[in-house]
Design a binder for these strands. Structure first.
Lengths: 144, 144
DNA sequence: TTGGCAGTTGCGAACTTTTGCAACTGCGGT
DNA sequence: ACCGCAGTTGCAAAAGTTCGCAACTGCCAA
Protein backbone atom coordinates (compact mmCIF):
# COMPACT_ATOMS: atom_id res chain seq x y z
CA UNK A 1 0.00 0.00 0.00
CA UNK A 2 1.27 3.44 -0.91
CA UNK A 3 1.47 6.30 1.52
CA UNK A 4 -1.32 8.28 -0.10
CA UNK A 5 -3.87 5.46 0.11
CA UNK A 6 -5.52 6.95 3.17
CA UNK A 7 -6.02 10.22 1.32
CA UNK A 8 -7.46 8.31 -1.63
CA UNK A 9 -9.88 6.50 0.67
CA UNK A 10 -10.89 9.84 2.12
CA UNK A 11 -11.67 11.18 -1.35
CA UNK A 12 -13.65 8.08 -2.29
CA UNK A 13 -15.73 8.41 0.86
CA UNK A 14 -16.43 12.04 0.06
CA UNK A 15 -18.04 10.84 -3.16
CA UNK A 16 -15.84 12.95 -5.43
CA UNK A 17 -14.41 11.70 -8.69
CA UNK A 18 -11.03 10.04 -8.54
CA UNK A 19 -9.37 10.64 -11.88
CA UNK A 20 -5.87 9.45 -12.87
CA UNK A 21 -4.74 13.09 -12.89
CA UNK A 22 -5.82 13.55 -9.29
CA UNK A 23 -4.18 10.31 -8.25
CA UNK A 24 -0.92 11.33 -9.92
CA UNK A 25 -0.87 14.76 -8.29
CA UNK A 26 -1.58 13.15 -4.93
CA UNK A 27 1.17 10.62 -5.49
CA UNK A 28 3.70 13.28 -6.48
CA UNK A 29 2.99 15.31 -3.34
CA UNK A 30 2.77 12.36 -0.95
CA UNK A 31 5.94 10.69 -2.26
CA UNK A 32 7.92 13.78 -1.41
CA UNK A 33 9.06 14.86 2.00
CA UNK A 34 9.38 18.54 1.22
CA UNK A 35 7.04 21.07 -0.29
CA UNK A 36 6.46 21.12 -4.02
CA UNK A 37 5.58 24.11 -6.18
CA UNK A 38 2.94 23.77 -8.88
CA UNK A 39 5.66 23.55 -11.51
CA UNK A 40 7.45 20.79 -9.66
CA UNK A 41 4.23 18.82 -9.32
CA UNK A 42 3.64 19.32 -13.04
CA UNK A 43 7.12 18.03 -13.93
CA UNK A 44 6.66 14.92 -11.82
CA UNK A 45 3.22 14.19 -13.20
CA UNK A 46 4.43 14.67 -16.77
CA UNK A 47 7.10 12.03 -16.26
CA UNK A 48 4.26 9.58 -15.85
CA UNK A 49 1.84 11.09 -18.31
CA UNK A 50 3.21 13.80 -20.62
CA UNK A 51 -0.06 15.36 -21.75
CA UNK A 52 -1.35 16.53 -18.40
CA UNK A 53 -1.81 20.27 -18.64
CA UNK A 54 -0.53 22.85 -16.17
CA UNK A 55 -4.03 24.22 -15.73
CA UNK A 56 -5.15 20.79 -14.61
CA UNK A 57 -2.45 20.83 -11.95
CA UNK A 58 -3.69 24.22 -10.74
CA UNK A 59 -7.28 23.01 -10.62
CA UNK A 60 -6.25 19.78 -8.94
CA UNK A 61 -4.15 21.25 -6.15
CA UNK A 62 -6.97 23.72 -5.41
CA UNK A 63 -9.38 20.80 -5.27
CA UNK A 64 -7.16 18.64 -3.08
CA UNK A 65 -6.56 21.56 -0.76
CA UNK A 66 -10.30 22.09 -0.37
CA UNK A 67 -10.69 18.38 0.31
CA UNK A 68 -8.16 18.77 3.09
CA UNK A 69 -5.70 16.15 1.86
CA UNK A 70 -2.92 18.59 0.99
CA UNK A 71 -1.81 21.83 2.65
CA UNK A 72 -0.78 25.10 1.04
CA UNK A 73 2.31 27.10 1.98
CA UNK A 74 2.35 30.70 0.87
CA UNK A 75 5.52 32.60 1.75
CA UNK A 76 6.30 36.10 0.50
CA UNK A 77 8.83 36.05 -2.30
CA UNK A 78 8.45 32.35 -2.96
CA UNK A 79 6.19 30.30 -5.18
CA UNK A 80 3.20 28.69 -3.45
CA UNK A 81 4.07 25.20 -2.29
CA UNK A 82 1.99 22.16 -1.39
CA UNK A 83 2.57 19.31 1.00
CA UNK A 84 0.88 16.15 2.17
CA UNK A 85 -1.48 16.25 5.13
CA UNK A 86 -0.54 12.92 6.69
CA UNK A 87 -2.89 11.32 9.17
CA UNK A 88 -1.48 11.58 12.69
CA UNK A 89 1.21 14.00 11.58
CA UNK A 90 -0.95 17.06 10.96
CA UNK A 91 0.96 20.25 11.57
CA UNK A 92 1.06 23.93 10.80
CA UNK A 93 4.00 26.14 9.95
CA UNK A 94 5.66 29.09 11.62
CA UNK A 95 8.11 30.98 9.42
CA UNK A 96 10.73 33.38 10.77
CA UNK A 97 10.49 36.63 8.84
CA UNK A 98 14.13 37.43 9.68
CA UNK A 99 16.03 34.28 8.76
CA UNK A 100 13.39 32.29 6.91
CA UNK A 101 13.62 29.28 9.22
CA UNK A 102 10.52 27.14 9.25
CA UNK A 103 9.19 25.45 12.37
CA UNK A 104 6.47 22.81 12.33
CA UNK A 105 3.74 23.46 14.86
CA UNK A 106 1.88 20.42 16.16
CA UNK A 107 -1.86 20.47 15.49
CA UNK A 108 -2.69 19.92 19.17
CA UNK A 109 -1.27 23.36 19.98
CA UNK A 110 -4.12 24.86 17.97
CA UNK A 111 -6.77 23.02 19.94
CA UNK A 112 -7.10 25.83 22.46
CA UNK A 113 -7.79 28.34 19.69
CA UNK A 114 -10.34 26.05 18.13
CA UNK A 115 -12.15 25.72 21.46
CA UNK A 116 -12.26 29.48 21.98
CA UNK A 117 -13.77 30.05 18.55
CA UNK A 118 -16.40 27.40 19.11
CA UNK A 119 -17.39 28.76 22.51
CA UNK A 120 -17.31 32.44 21.71
CA UNK A 121 -18.43 32.56 18.08
CA UNK A 122 -20.00 29.14 17.47
CA UNK A 123 -17.56 28.79 14.61
CA UNK A 124 -16.12 25.36 13.75
CA UNK A 125 -12.64 26.14 12.42
CA UNK A 126 -11.18 23.90 9.81
CA UNK A 127 -7.59 23.69 10.99
CA UNK A 128 -6.12 21.71 8.14
CA UNK A 129 -3.18 23.93 7.56
CA UNK A 130 -2.07 27.37 8.64
CA UNK A 131 1.06 29.41 8.09
CA UNK A 132 2.10 31.91 10.74
CA UNK A 133 4.92 34.40 10.53
CA UNK A 134 7.03 35.89 13.30
CA UNK A 135 10.52 35.60 14.73
CA UNK A 136 12.29 32.44 15.81
CA UNK A 137 14.17 32.16 19.11
CA UNK A 138 17.59 32.63 17.51
CA UNK A 139 16.65 35.82 15.66
CA UNK A 140 14.97 37.28 18.73
CA UNK A 141 18.24 36.87 20.60
CA UNK A 142 20.17 38.76 17.91
CA UNK A 143 17.71 41.57 17.20
CA UNK A 144 14.95 41.64 19.79
CA UNK B 1 -6.14 64.54 11.43
CA UNK B 2 -6.97 61.69 9.05
CA UNK B 3 -7.66 58.18 10.20
CA UNK B 4 -4.48 56.76 8.73
CA UNK B 5 -2.18 59.19 10.56
CA UNK B 6 -1.23 56.62 13.15
CA UNK B 7 -0.14 54.23 10.44
CA UNK B 8 1.87 57.02 8.84
CA UNK B 9 3.57 57.76 12.15
CA UNK B 10 4.36 54.08 12.48
CA UNK B 11 6.02 54.06 9.06
CA UNK B 12 8.02 57.18 9.85
CA UNK B 13 9.28 55.64 13.06
CA UNK B 14 10.32 52.52 11.20
CA UNK B 15 12.60 54.73 9.14
CA UNK B 16 11.13 53.68 5.80
CA UNK B 17 10.49 56.11 2.98
CA UNK B 18 7.12 57.76 2.88
CA UNK B 19 6.34 58.49 -0.76
CA UNK B 20 3.15 60.12 -2.07
CA UNK B 21 2.22 56.79 -3.69
CA UNK B 22 2.43 55.01 -0.36
CA UNK B 23 0.41 57.72 1.36
CA UNK B 24 -2.29 57.51 -1.32
CA UNK B 25 -2.58 53.73 -1.10
CA UNK B 26 -2.78 53.98 2.68
CA UNK B 27 -5.44 56.66 2.41
CA UNK B 28 -7.51 54.65 -0.08
CA UNK B 29 -7.49 51.60 2.20
CA UNK B 30 -8.01 53.47 5.46
CA UNK B 31 -10.83 55.65 4.10
CA UNK B 32 -12.80 52.55 3.28
CA UNK B 33 -14.69 50.35 5.67
CA UNK B 34 -14.63 47.22 3.57
CA UNK B 35 -11.88 45.31 1.86
CA UNK B 36 -10.40 46.58 -1.38
CA UNK B 37 -8.88 44.55 -4.18
CA UNK B 38 -5.69 45.72 -5.84
CA UNK B 39 -7.68 47.00 -8.80
CA UNK B 40 -10.00 48.99 -6.58
CA UNK B 41 -7.07 50.55 -4.77
CA UNK B 42 -5.58 51.40 -8.14
CA UNK B 43 -8.77 53.09 -9.33
CA UNK B 44 -9.00 55.21 -6.20
CA UNK B 45 -5.37 56.22 -6.31
CA UNK B 46 -5.64 57.13 -10.00
CA UNK B 47 -8.48 59.51 -9.24
CA UNK B 48 -5.95 61.52 -7.27
CA UNK B 49 -2.95 60.91 -9.43
CA UNK B 50 -3.57 59.30 -12.84
CA UNK B 51 -0.05 58.11 -13.62
CA UNK B 52 0.44 55.76 -10.71
CA UNK B 53 1.10 52.33 -12.17
CA UNK B 54 -0.61 49.09 -11.20
CA UNK B 55 2.77 47.50 -10.46
CA UNK B 56 3.40 50.24 -7.92
CA UNK B 57 0.14 49.34 -6.21
CA UNK B 58 1.21 45.71 -6.05
CA UNK B 59 4.60 46.62 -4.63
CA UNK B 60 3.05 49.06 -2.19
CA UNK B 61 0.39 46.76 -0.73
CA UNK B 62 3.06 44.07 -0.27
CA UNK B 63 5.23 46.63 1.49
CA UNK B 64 2.42 47.95 3.71
CA UNK B 65 1.44 44.42 4.60
CA UNK B 66 4.98 43.60 5.67
CA UNK B 67 5.01 46.79 7.72
CA UNK B 68 1.89 45.52 9.45
CA UNK B 69 -0.32 48.53 8.69
CA UNK B 70 -2.67 46.68 6.34
CA UNK B 71 -3.98 43.12 6.39
CA UNK B 72 -4.42 40.71 3.50
CA UNK B 73 -7.56 38.66 2.87
CA UNK B 74 -7.17 35.71 0.57
CA UNK B 75 -10.35 33.77 -0.11
CA UNK B 76 -10.63 30.99 -2.68
CA UNK B 77 -12.38 32.18 -5.83
CA UNK B 78 -12.06 35.86 -4.99
CA UNK B 79 -9.41 38.45 -5.68
CA UNK B 80 -7.02 39.19 -2.82
CA UNK B 81 -8.31 42.08 -0.73
CA UNK B 82 -6.67 44.48 1.70
CA UNK B 83 -7.95 46.28 4.74
CA UNK B 84 -6.75 48.72 7.36
CA UNK B 85 -5.18 47.44 10.56
CA UNK B 86 -6.63 50.04 12.95
CA UNK B 87 -5.04 50.51 16.33
CA UNK B 88 -7.25 49.07 19.05
CA UNK B 89 -9.46 47.35 16.49
CA UNK B 90 -7.08 44.62 15.37
CA UNK B 91 -8.93 41.52 14.30
CA UNK B 92 -8.67 38.38 12.25
CA UNK B 93 -11.20 36.74 9.96
CA UNK B 94 -13.09 33.48 9.99
CA UNK B 95 -14.83 32.62 6.74
CA UNK B 96 -17.57 30.04 6.43
CA UNK B 97 -16.72 27.68 3.58
CA UNK B 98 -20.39 26.80 3.13
CA UNK B 99 -22.16 30.16 2.97
CA UNK B 100 -19.23 32.56 2.67
CA UNK B 101 -20.17 34.54 5.78
CA UNK B 102 -17.26 36.38 7.35
CA UNK B 103 -16.85 36.77 11.09
CA UNK B 104 -14.34 39.11 12.69
CA UNK B 105 -12.29 37.47 15.42
CA UNK B 106 -10.94 39.73 18.13
CA UNK B 107 -7.16 39.76 18.45
CA UNK B 108 -7.29 38.92 22.15
CA UNK B 109 -8.71 35.49 21.29
CA UNK B 110 -5.39 34.66 19.67
CA UNK B 111 -3.39 35.55 22.77
CA UNK B 112 -3.55 32.02 24.11
CA UNK B 113 -2.12 30.64 20.88
CA UNK B 114 0.64 33.22 20.94
CA UNK B 115 1.57 32.25 24.51
CA UNK B 116 1.72 28.56 23.65
CA UNK B 117 4.04 29.18 20.72
CA UNK B 118 6.33 31.33 22.83
CA UNK B 119 6.52 28.78 25.65
CA UNK B 120 6.82 25.64 23.58
CA UNK B 121 8.80 26.79 20.54
CA UNK B 122 10.33 30.12 21.61
CA UNK B 123 8.63 31.58 18.55
CA UNK B 124 7.28 35.14 18.67
CA UNK B 125 4.28 35.07 16.33
CA UNK B 126 3.41 38.17 14.43
CA UNK B 127 -0.36 38.11 14.65
CA UNK B 128 -1.17 41.07 12.44
CA UNK B 129 -3.77 39.33 10.38
CA UNK B 130 -4.95 35.79 9.85
CA UNK B 131 -7.74 34.23 7.84
CA UNK B 132 -9.29 31.02 9.08
CA UNK B 133 -11.85 28.87 7.30
CA UNK B 134 -14.51 26.60 8.71
CA UNK B 135 -18.25 26.52 9.24
CA UNK B 136 -20.37 29.15 10.91
CA UNK B 137 -23.02 28.32 13.52
CA UNK B 138 -25.92 28.61 11.05
CA UNK B 139 -24.41 26.26 8.47
CA UNK B 140 -23.45 23.71 11.13
CA UNK B 141 -27.10 23.57 12.13
CA UNK B 142 -28.22 22.89 8.57
CA UNK B 143 -25.54 20.38 7.50
CA UNK B 144 -23.50 19.26 10.49
C1' DT C 1 19.51 74.75 2.62
C1' DT C 2 21.61 71.77 -0.30
C1' DG C 3 23.96 67.34 -2.27
C1' DG C 4 24.26 62.62 -2.63
C1' DC C 5 22.51 58.25 -2.86
C1' DA C 6 19.77 54.17 -1.42
C1' DG C 7 15.45 53.13 -2.21
C1' DT C 8 11.28 53.89 -5.19
C1' DT C 9 8.76 54.60 -9.41
C1' DG C 10 6.76 54.06 -14.28
C1' DC C 11 7.01 51.49 -18.11
C1' DG C 12 7.33 47.44 -20.92
C1' DA C 13 7.86 42.77 -21.16
C1' DA C 14 7.89 38.28 -19.02
C1' DC C 15 5.85 35.17 -16.26
C1' DT C 16 2.06 32.95 -13.52
C1' DT C 17 -2.60 31.75 -12.77
C1' DT C 18 -7.36 31.53 -14.17
C1' DT C 19 -11.09 30.89 -17.44
C1' DG C 20 -14.24 29.40 -21.46
C1' DC C 21 -15.33 25.75 -24.03
C1' DA C 22 -15.82 21.37 -26.60
C1' DA C 23 -14.52 16.68 -25.96
C1' DC C 24 -14.02 13.12 -22.69
C1' DT C 25 -14.74 9.96 -18.59
C1' DG C 26 -15.64 8.07 -13.73
C1' DC C 27 -19.17 6.12 -11.57
C1' DG C 28 -23.99 5.26 -10.06
C1' DG C 29 -28.10 3.21 -11.80
C1' DT C 30 -30.12 -0.29 -14.75
C1' DA D 1 -21.88 -5.24 -18.65
C1' DC D 2 -23.52 -1.03 -20.46
C1' DC D 3 -25.62 3.83 -20.41
C1' DG D 4 -26.06 8.53 -19.32
C1' DC D 5 -24.54 12.56 -17.64
C1' DA D 6 -22.40 15.65 -14.11
C1' DG D 7 -18.08 16.67 -13.41
C1' DT D 8 -13.24 16.83 -15.39
C1' DT D 9 -9.75 17.59 -18.82
C1' DG D 10 -6.67 19.74 -22.54
C1' DC D 11 -6.13 23.51 -25.10
C1' DA D 12 -5.90 28.32 -26.17
C1' DA D 13 -6.65 32.80 -24.89
C1' DA D 14 -7.37 36.22 -21.17
C1' DA D 15 -6.41 38.08 -16.83
C1' DG D 16 -3.56 38.83 -12.99
C1' DT D 17 1.06 39.47 -10.96
C1' DT D 18 6.00 40.11 -10.98
C1' DC D 19 10.40 41.78 -12.76
C1' DG D 20 14.33 44.50 -15.00
C1' DC D 21 15.89 48.75 -15.67
C1' DA D 22 16.67 53.74 -16.32
C1' DA D 23 14.97 57.89 -14.35
C1' DC D 24 13.51 60.01 -10.22
C1' DT D 25 13.11 61.46 -5.21
C1' DG D 26 12.71 61.28 0.07
C1' DC D 27 15.57 61.97 3.57
C1' DC D 28 19.93 62.14 6.09
C1' DA D 29 24.25 64.50 6.86
C1' DA D 30 26.84 68.49 6.48
Amino acid sequence: MSCESRAIDQLRESGVRLTPQRAMVLEAIYHNDGHLSVDEVHERVQQQSPYVDLSTIYRTVMFLKQQGVIGELRLDGQPVRYEAVRYGKEHHHAVCSTCGAMIEIDSVDMQELSDILTQKYGFAVNLIHLTLTGQCAACQAISP
